[in-house]
């Protein structure tokens, strides 16, 4: 054998390979295409191509009234629809200078925190499934069903609830609401323990998450990342603390943060956030005040049925609101 050739091939020249992943790939939950540049098994460059789920919601909203937009906000981030409702309604309420009554605020806090848990559960479940742990998905979906039951109880729909309305809620909370939420509060901490037992020290899970997808705090802020991902990078920032809305300043809770900003830290932050959400729900549930569930602002909120049938003014407001409504020029979602 020629020694010179061997010497030459000691450091073989390599070239990277371009691989297309998606828009349909085995772990599709949202359709995304990533053009990967691979050096062996290492990804050197990833160019995402988005827009496969672009729905044109902003365009559809142009022709809708303020109330008609609410069901569309459900469908933006469909695993956390109540939070989307709230974000939109807070903007509308600020625009119209309306303050929701305390009861509505408390129920909003309870339901959005439960939504946060449902959304995080979905994240944990599908993510574990994607990297090879089927059990966690089944466990997480099982727990999520309990939360969906609560949403269904208050609104009649499992996912697209549209339960929050301008000035408060669509209707009063039913009697069974409180015991149902209490049951979740009682059983859920053990379930989080279950996920911890399955994943937190699992060798395969650690291998596939620790040190993967690391973002530094400066990069995260520069790239406009917020929420649990930013907190996992070590930045102690939470919109509920810095700009409290819906009376979040009245509840005691901690902001969990990570250190390394990798996938594993994001997982830990999300698990801890579920526990903190339970804390908030617990406090809010104890303190639901009496009173009306919606601020009846004339011309904005539909008057109660009995008034429409007995009072001409209320009838006019109802009529104008249904036929004309308040409309908007441009809405942007982010």
């Amino acid at each position: 054998m020629n020694v010179e050739i061997l010497k030459k091939t000691e450091k073989p020249e390599t070239e990277t390979m371009i691989l297309n992943m998606g828009p349909h790939h085995p772990s599709t939950h949202g359709v995304l295409r990533v053009i990967l540049e691979l050096d062996g098994e290492t990804i050197v460059k990833a160019t995402p191509d988005i827009g496969f789920l672009h729905t044109g919601i902003e365009k559809t909203m142009e022709n809708k009234t303020y109330n008609q937009v609410i069901p569309l906000t459900d469908r933006m981030d469909y695993v956390a629809s109540l939070s989307n409702n709230l974000a939109y309604l807070l903007a509308v309420e600020k625009l119209l200078d309306i303050q929701a009554p305390p009861k509505a605020e408390f129920v909003r806090v309870i339901l959005t925190e439960l939504t946060r848990i449902a959304s995080h559960l979905w994240w944990v479940g599908t993510h574990a499934h994607d990297i090879g742990a089927m059990t966690v998905l089944l466990y997480a979906v099982r727990e999520r069903e309990k939360l969906l039951d609560i949403f269904e109880l208050v609104s009649g729909q499992r996912m697209m609830t549209s339960y929050f309305r301008i000035g408060g809620l669509a209707k009063d909370i039913p009697e069974e609401f409180e015991p149902k939420v209490r049951e979740v509060l009682k059983t859920f901490p053990d379930k989080i323990e279950d996920y911890e037992n399955l994943l937190t020290k699992n060798r395969i899970w650690l291998n596939r998450t620790v040190g993967v997808g690391t973002i530094s705090a400066e990069d995260a802020i520069d790239l406009g990342v917020s929420g649990p991902v930013l907190r996992a990078c070590g930045a102690e920032w939470d919109i509920r603390k810095s700009n409290p809305y819906s009376g979040y300043d009245e509840f005691a809770f901690d902001i969990p943060t990570g250190k390394n900003g990798d996938v594993y830290d994001r997982y830990l932050v999300r698990l801890e956030e579920m526990r903190q959400s339970l804390r908030i729900v617990n406090q809010a549930l104890d303190g639901i005040p009496e009173g009306d569930f919606v601020e009846r602002v004339p011309g904005v909120v539909l008057p109660p049925k009995e008034e429409v049938l007995s009072n001409i003014e209320a009838l006019i407001f109802q009529f104008k609101l249904v036929v004309e409504g308040l409309s908007l020029h441009r809405i942007t979602q982010r």
């Binding site: 349909h24 085995p26 599709t28 939950h29 949202g30 359709v31 789920l53 729905t55 469908r75 469909y78 695993v79 979905w122 599908t126 998905l137 979906v141 999520r144 069903e145 499992r158 996912m159 697209m160």
Partner: peptide, 13 residues
Amino acid sequence: GFGLACCAIEMIC
């Protein structure tokens, strides 16, 4: 196993 949007969540359920 092919999910597009909201209905995919219900399909997985």
